[in-house]
């Protein structure tokens, strides 16, 4: 089972390695990890997708909380949340199939952010499934390169973590 954790940490040197080291030492698996500064520049937010049963989740949460630089850990799994990932996909494209690719991008509300004579770069945001779907559709044209972020997530409504 997958869980999405929102982890607020001190925006400080070495915090990422503390969190990564904890996961490695205790044998927990990270599916994805995204880190960025929050509205408060002294705090960073890590969104961590971790795989495991409830017991594992409980231990992960408690062990994270033990780190001095971790301010708060929230499990977003049980909450009504909005989740997004971002992918940049460089795909083979020439005059013959450019419009076809643009149609696919349109359907996914993706953006073309670079065009060259033999390639295009497509920016797509969405949940994991959507990104997998567009990846599948673009595969026949030949994906030259793909870069993907980890998942980020917020609760719906006025409540914050």
């Amino acid at each position: 089972m997958k869980h999405t954790l929102a982890v607020l940490v001190e925006n400080r040197y070495g915090v990422l390695s503390r969190v990564a080291s904890l996961f490695a030492r205790r044998g927990y698996n990270i599916d994805s990890l995204a880190v960025g500064v929050t509205e408060d520049p002294t705090i960073s937010r890590m969104t961590i997708v971790v795989r495991g049963d409830d017991l594992v989740l409980e231990q992960v949460t408690k062990q994270l909380n033990k780190l001095i630089d971790v301010i708060r850990v929230t499990d977003l799994g049980s909450e009504d949340t909005v989740e997004r990932e971002l992918a940049l996909i460089k795909v083979n494209a020439d005059v013959n199939n450019r419009s076809e690719i643009m149609q696919i991008a349109d359907i996914f509300r993706a953006k073309i952010i670079d065009v060259a004579s033999k390639s295009m770069v497509i920016e797509v945001t969405g949940d994991e499934n959507k990104i997998r779907a567009i990846e599948q559709l673009l595969k026949p044209f030949g994906i030259k390169e793909m870069a993907r972020t980890g998942k980020i997530a917020l609760r719906r409504g006025p409540k914050s973590v």
Partner: peptide, 16 residues
């Protein structure tokens, strides 16, 4: 040494 002792300390500091 802060890297080495990360998993065996409650906390550690590299003064800057």
């Amino acid at each position: 040494i802060t890297g080495i002792t990360l998993p065996i300390t409650k906390h550690n500091y590299l003064l800057q």
